[in-house]
């Protein structure tokens, strides 16, 4: 059940009439020797950490280590509870949850890198929200995480999920692609639709640079986790409606990798370009790091 890219994954799914998560579980069993029960137990642990991080960020007073961010997720949540949200309650919940988890990460709390710590809010923020809104079971959510991991695996293997290599498109783009595929499968979409949604996610933010202020995983990372959650939901909505991706998933991943390689060093997590290099960005850096 081994696959190395999207085409091979879809072939296996179609031939055996299986969902992406089923194929991914078989691959994991082959690669690691773990049983399905052990794999599911491990993923349940990950899901628990995700739930706790989201709850913590949405209910406690969070302040990041540097003091740059904290409390923003709560603001979005409170507005959604008090007033009519501009983008609808589900979207509002998803973005506040994604922000909450990133805030917990920035405050040295416990999270699951998915696929990285800098993009750790997107997959859980969207999946937990979809789970709540559609009354999904824990087993469903674990299946969703496994589908997400299959997409992340393909991107890691054939391109990169590291901001230092591919910019923010590689981090929050991959996270959104993972989340989107999971949402499509959970909502009854086909494996092909799932990968179309992933492709669209990456296309939507192709070229996005990684320019963290003072080099910290805080700003603009928190807001890009919010937009990543929105990206995942929007792309899933399109795919489930039958809107495909003109460029196939594998080719989009390859394009993302090549664009990442074209990005100068300054725009790949070095904190030397983009927002980090603005007068305000530089002032904040001086204040925090004292340079």
């Amino acid at each position: 059940m081994s696959f190395t890219n999207g085409i091979e994954l879809l072939e296996i799914c179609e031939k055996s009439n299986k969902k992406i998560y089923e194929v991914m579980i078989e691959k994991e069993i082959e690669d690691t020797g773990l049983s399905e029960i052990e794999i599911r137990e491990k993923m349940t642990e990950s899901l628990t950490i995700m739930k706790e991080a989201s709850l913590k960020g949405l209910t406690e007073d969070i302040k990041s280590v540097s003091g740059l961010i904290g409390g923003d997720a709560k603001k979005v949540k409170e507005r959604n509870e008090k007033e009519r949200s501009v983008c609808g309650p589900l979207m509002s919940k998803a973005i506040s949850s994604a922000m909450a988890i990133l805030e917990v990460n920035a405050a040295m709390g416990k999270i699951v890198a998915a696929p990285t710590a800098g993009s750790c809010g997107i997959v859980p923020g969207t999946l937990l929200t979809i789970g709540e809104e559609f009354n999904l079971s824990e087993v469903d959510l674990i299946n969703g995480l496994i589908t997400a991991s299959a997409v992340g695996f393909i991107i890691s293997r054939n391109a990169t999920v590291a901001g230092a290599e591919g910019g923010c498109q590689a981090e929050t783009g991959s996270a959104a692609a993972m989340a989107s595929a999971a949402i499509v499968e959970l909502m009854g979409g086909t494996p092909k639709q799932a990968l179309d949604a992933s492709a669209v996610c990456i296309k939507n933010i192709l070229g996005l640079v990684c320019d963290p202020i003072a080099g910290l995983v805080e700003a603009p990372c928190e807001k890009r986790n919010a937009i990543g959650a929105a990206n995942a939901l929007i792309s899933a909505e399109m795919a489930l409606s039958g809107v495909g991706s003109l460029i196939p998933f594998d080719e989009v991943v390859e394009a993302m990798y090549r664009v990442g390689r074209c990005l100068p060093f300054e725009l790949r997590e070095s904190a030397l370009g983009g927002l980090a290099d603005t007068p305000t960005g530089k002032r904040i850096k001086k204040e925090i790091l004292g340079e």
Binding site: K110, V112, A113, S149, A150, L216
Partner: peptide, 24 residues
């Protein structure tokens, strides 16, 4: 080529904020 486990992608479980600067 490294054989990625699904827990390399959804993981590691860690204390933030950075997998390389904190977990590593």
């Amino acid at each position: 080529m490294k054989n990625y486990s699904m827990f390399d992608v959804i993981g590691p479980n860690m204390i933030g904020p950075s997998s390389s600067h904190t977990a590593g």
